[in-house]
């Protein structure tokens, strides 16, 4: 959306309305620019899917950690230092050759912020929110993931404050890689369940 001059009958753009709200709240002493910038930095650079990738890579290489993660996701994720707002209680589920988990929030776009950051555009898209609870195989196919007919699909609609993290399958041929080397293979999309982790 552009902020260049338009006819006066045009409603102001959302960008201009954002600027207007910032001014109005600042004038009333209701926001602190430092706090505002801190929130932006937090979700643009500090928190993101790299956190989740570290959790997954640890689970791929440490069977005891994997067990703890699937038993009590919140506690295991906290071991790596992640948790908090929009991730108070996280349940991890493991994809296997026979079961495939995929996560959605049909009511808004709830997402495990501490491990994955803010949701990508496809996750917030009405088409995804509406359809993946009704025809997940078709949706996954449109997103580029074809599942064999015998694979059981389990959709998780995160309607409460419980958040879901998918533990993807470790790709074949990565047995020689270290935990650190595995981290870049773990994509955000694999941790939501619309893709598989790919071999390097």
């Amino acid at each position: 959306m552009t902020t260049t001059t338009r006819g006066h009958d045009e409603p102001p753009s959302v960008a201009l309305r954002t600027e207007a709200l910032e001014q109005l709240l600042t004038e009333r002493g209701l926001i602190d620019p430092k706090v505002m910038n801190g929130i932006i930095t937090q979700y643009e650079t500090t928190v993101g899917p790299l956190n989740g990738a570290k959790v997954v890579a640890r689970a791929w290489t440490d069977p005891e950690y994997r067990h703890r993660l699937l038993e009590d996701g919140t506690a295991a994720i906290k071991e790596l230092g992640f948790g908090g707002f929009q991730g108070e209680h996280i349940v991890a589920v493991a994809n296997t050759p026979t079961t495939h988990h995929v996560v959605v929030c049909t009511l808004c776009s709830c997402y495990p912020w501490p491990v994955l950051g803010l949701p990508p555009s496809w996750y917030k898209d009405p088409a995804y929110r509406a359809r993946v609870v009704r025809e997940p195989r078709t949706v996954l196919s449109e997103m580029g993931l074809e599942l064999d007919d015998e694979v059981q699909v389990v959709v998780h609609d995160s309607t409460s404050e419980v958040r879901w993290l998918v533990l993807p399958e470790r790709p074949a041929g990565t047995e020689h890689l270290t935990e650190e080397e595995l981290v870049p293979l773990v994509t955000r999309d694999a941790m939501v369940g619309v893709a598989k982790a790919a071999a390097p």
Binding site: M1, V14, A15, T18, E19, L21, E22, L25, L30, I31, V35, M36, N37, I39, I40, Y43, E44, G48, G117, L118, P120, S121, W122, D125, P126, A127, Y128, A130, R131, V132, V139, E142, M143, G144, R188, D189, V194, A195
Partner: peptide, 29 residues
């Protein structure tokens, strides 16, 4: 709603500049 939109690699958190402040202002609101 039509077809879903396949994931894009390396999609930025905020695609447009105003979205940064809109997000933070919404939380602060």
């Amino acid at each position: 709603w039509g077809p879903v939109h396949p994931p894009k690699r390396d999609e930025p958190v905020f695609a447009e500049d105003w979205q940064r402040k809109a997000f933070a202002l919404a939380i602060l609101s």
